[in-house]
Amino acid sequence: MIIRLKGIEKKYGNVQAVKPIDLTIEENFVTILGQSGCGKTTLLKMLAGLTEPTAGEIFFDDQLIFSKTKGINVKPNKREIAMVFQDFGLWPHMTVFENVAFGLRGKVSKAKRTNIVHEALKKVKLETKAAMRPGELSGGQQQRVALARAIAINPKLILFDEALSALDAVLREEMREEILTIVQSIGSQAIFVTHDQTEAMAMSDSMIIMDTGEVVQTGSPETIYHTPANPFVANFIGKTNWIKDKEMMIRPEHVHLYPDSDTTYRTGVIQKSMYEGDRYVIFVETDGQIWKFYDQHPHEKGASITFYMKENTIHSLIKQEAY
C-alpha cells in the first residue's frame, strides 16, 4: 500500500504538535524515529484515525481517508489497520483467546473466528496459553497477545506505538526479530514508532526522522546513517565526530590508527576507554573537542595518539537538506 500525506498537521490550541507534512510511505517496514515530544505518536494516531488532523489529506493508495476541506474522515475500524500499543491494551478480565478474538466479533462466524484466533496464537507461539488471562502472563507474552490480536483481523497496515519500550533489553531484541518475521509472513505493511535508534536501524526498510514536529529526513537506515541531513540527525543516529563547527562529520568506525593512501591525520590525548563487549570506544581530546574511535584494546589515559581518516569518509553537511 502507498500512503500519502499532503499538508497533514496537528495543532492543540496554539501548540503546533506536528507541522505541515508532505510524505509518501510505500516500504514494507517503516519506523518513525525521534525524541520524546517530537510528534511521532501524534502522526501515527492521525494515520490510525484516533487523532483528527487540523489540516491536510491522507490517502491509502487511491482512497482518500481524510480531508479537512472535503469533510472526509474514515473511521478507524474502516481503514483496514491494526494498532499495537505501548501498554499492550489487553482486557484483563478476558482470556487470551477472547482478547485476540475481540476485533473479529460481528465480522466472521464463530467457527471461523475460532480458527483465525488459533492460527494467530500459533504464529506468536502462544497456542497453549489461550485459556489464561493477561495477568498470568509475562510482559513478553502479553506483547505477543497484542500482536496476535493485531494480525487476527488480517490488516493491510499494522501501527506500532513504542510497542517494545516496556520490555527488558534481551526481550526487546527477541521481540523485534519476531515482529519482523510475523509481519513479513502475513504480507502486511508496518509503521513502527520508537525513540530507540538501534531498534529503528535494525528493523527498518525506511526511516522517518522527526524533530520538534517536523520530518527532517527520510531514507534507508544506511543512507541516514552515512549521509545525515543536519547535525540533529547526525547526533541522533549513531556516534559522531565533528569537523569545522558541525559543517563536516565522520563516524568513529572510519577513524584509524595507521596511515593509508589519501588520509589526513590529527593528534590528541586519550581521555578514557569504554568497553562495549565486542570492542572499546576510545575517547580522545583533540583541538578542544572529544573524538571517538573503536579499537579491540583499551588505551592508557593521558597517552598521546595520532589517528587517521580518509577524505572520502568525511561527510559534509553544507547544503544538505531534508528529503
Rank of each mutant, 00 (worst) to 15 (best):
M1K: 13
R4F: 03
R4A: 02
G7T: 05
G13F: 14
N14E: 13
K19Y: 12
K19N: 10
I21A: 02
D22Q: 12
T24S: 07
I25M: 11
E26D: 14
N28L: 01
T31H: 11
K45G: 11
K45F: 11
L47I: 07
E52F: 05
G56Y: 09
G56Q: 06
E57T: 02
F59N: 07
D61I: 03
Q63E: 09
Q63K: 15
S67K: 14
K70I: 02
G71R: 03
K75E: 12
I81C: 06
I81R: 06
V84M: 04
Q86T: 08
D87V: 00
F88W: 12
G89V: 03
L90M: 11
V100Y: 08
L104Y: 00
K107L: 02
K107Y: 01
K112Y: 00
T114K: 12
T114P: 05
K123D: 01
A130C: 01
M132T: 07
G135L: 07
G135Q: 07
G140V: 09
V145F: 09
V145S: 04
A146Q: 06
L147R: 09
I151L: 01
L164C: 03
V170N: 14
S185G: 07
G187K: 08
G187Q: 11
A190M: 06
H195D: 04
A202M: 09
S204F: 03
I209E: 03
E214P: 08
V216P: 11
G219A: 01
Y225D: 07
T227S: 07
N235I: 09
G238S: 08
G238Y: 10
G238K: 07
T240W: 13
N241A: 03
I243P: 15
M248R: 15
V255R: 05
H256V: 14
H256P: 05
D260V: 04
Y265K: 10
T267F: 07
G268M: 05
Y275H: 15
R279P: 09
F283S: 15
D287V: 08
I290R: 13
W291F: 11
K292C: 10
Q296G: 14
Q296Y: 08
T306W: 01
T313R: 14
T313A: 02
T313Y: 15
L317P: 12
K319A: 10
Q320K: 15
A322W: 13
Y323G: 02
